[in-house]
Amino acid sequence: MLDDKFDYLLRLGDNALVLSQRLTEWVGKGPALEEDMALANTALDLIGQARLWLGYAGEVEGMGRTEDQLAFLRDAHQFRNLLIVERPNGGYADTLMRQYLFDSWHLLLLEQLTRASDERIAAIAEKAKKEVTYHLRRSADLVVRLGDGNQESHRRMQAALDELWVYTGEMFEVDSVDEILESHGIAGSVSGLRSPWLAQVGRTLAAATLNMPPADAWMQKGGKQGRHGEHLGFLLAEMQFLQRAYPGLQW
């Protein structure tokens, strides 16, 4: 049970951490100053959330590992994030579509977790929910504006959606960790988020004049269990460089 809870908290923390790292790759290169700030601010919120989740994960594990050690000293197969968050940034359309697909799921998940029987999980979810509400407000707005923008922006947003869709199924996949946490009332049913998510995303994509790929399409999976694509290793190599080269280094 404790192992499962540890694993579950890693999933929450790693999603936030890996997506945050991806977003910071844009800093200084955003297509407009306002977008640069938005990406950096979103990344900062996610880093803060990752610290809260990973800090708790370290306590649950009981081996004395801090959030920093969990972030910087695990290898790719020990990460439990969804595959969608480790996808390379691509163009701005790809980054925004990834953010929207994740934000819309993330908010539903956090809303569910605010009702968790574990008080700490509920408290972190309550705090994160306020921030993610704001993230979703922006990413949904931009998906509509660019999808329903000009021919070129529409084409790019549709291509990004088609490319990323295959990574959305994993968000609702239930494995033994989910089942055990659900049976203890700690987490809700992640599969139960699927139909509200599809309905909400369907409305946004319709407003954006984008074609939603079929919900029953074949889906990629494995990230939650530590089976990642080739991209995560490169991301970690950059993120973890300092602690690997100079173990224990502090500011």
């Binding site: 407000r137 409305r203 407003a207």
Partner: peptide
């Protein structure tokens, strides 16, 4: 008040973007 903010503000997909956002 944040406590009185409606979460439906987020639900942009329902139609036109509300000016209140």
């Amino acid at each position: 008040l944040a406590a009185q903010q409606s979460i439906s503000l987020v639900d942009i997909g329902r139609g036109a973007r509300p000016a209140s956002v």
